[in-house]
């Protein structure tokens, strides 16, 4: 099965998006707010690059969307009683989630577009991207790495029934810890290791280079390498966890609890 499950789960997620038009609204609220707040706050700080601020708002939205599709959707499936049927099928839950994560990460691109539009129309920001092609590649890398992280974190949603609150926490936590809109050096020292093992941190770094810097330097390549290494680790760890979960869930009967 493999690819086929991933594909059809991602198509399914897409249909579900279409069937519920309010997602557009739902998903764009927080990136819109974050970008707006940040744009107003940074208005008087000339050293800051507005394009980067706008983009940061957008990728925060992408992360939110990925988490919604990979993690929170498990809560919803549990609630509607479909999770048990997914589980009873020969397809692995991991692949199903992977498909959903991909779709929702891609749908999250809409956040980016939306935030850019708002910035241009409402705030008259001049969008300047130093390396457009690199930017697009970096964006693709971000999508991949967000999905990988989404798969890893989705294990929590499968195992825990208090996952509803978890969704909010994980979404916000990444915003805070990954220093998307401020340097990580602001954070308490003991949190920083966590920042370094989360791909959004590096995704933000890579995108910052692509948007701002005239020359792509070492920092960019370190970022790319870190995203690659970390994403692969997420997938491997996620795979291991899912192989355990398949058994664990049947021991604890958590498929039916919420």
């Amino acid at each position: 099965m493999g690819m086929r499950t991933i594909f059809s789960a991602s198509r399914q997620a897409f249909y579900e998006f279409l069937a519920r038009p309010v997602w557009i609204f739902e998903m764009t609220v927080s990136p819109f707010v974050f970008a707006t707040v940040a744009l107003i706050m940074f208005r008087d700080s000339p050293s800051t690059n507005s394009t980067y601020i706008v983009m940061a708002g957008g990728i925060m939205g992408m992360w939110g969307s990925t988490l919604l599709g990979a993690g929170y959707s498990v809560v919803i499936e549990r609630y509607f009683g479909t999770l048990q049927y997914l589980f009873a099928s020969p397809s692995s839950l991991e692949e199903i989630i992977a498909g959903k994560a991909l779709t929702s990460a891609v749908m999250g691109l809409w956040n980016l577009v939306f935030v850019f539009l708002i910035a241009i129309i409402l705030f008259g920001v001049d969008i300047e991207i130093a390396h457009p092609l690199t930017f697009l590649l970096a964006l693709g890398l971000c999508l991949f790495s967000f999905s990988a992280l989404g798969i890893l974190l989705s294990t929590l949603f499968v195992l825990s029934r208090s996952a509803a609150a978890l969704g909010n926490i994980l979404e916000f936590a990444a915003f805070v810890v990954c220093g998307i809109m401020y340097p990580i050096s602001f954070l308490p020292v003991w949190i920083r290791p966590l920042s370094y093992i989360l791909t959004p941190t590096w995704g933000a770094q890579v995108l910052r280079w692509a948007v701002i810097e005239p020359q792509l330097g070492e920092g960019f390549w370190i970022g790319v390498a870190m995203i690659g290494i970390l994403s692969c680790s997420y997938i491997v760890i996620g795979h291991y966890l899912y192989s355990r979960i398949d058994y664990q869930v049947r021991v604890t009967a958590s498929l039916w609890r919420f």
Binding site: Q12, L86, P90, S91
Partner: peptide, 8 residues
């Protein structure tokens, strides 16, 4: 359709 995909 979705479930038939999941069942291969």
């Amino acid at each position: 359709r979705y479930f038939s995909d999941l069942y291969g």
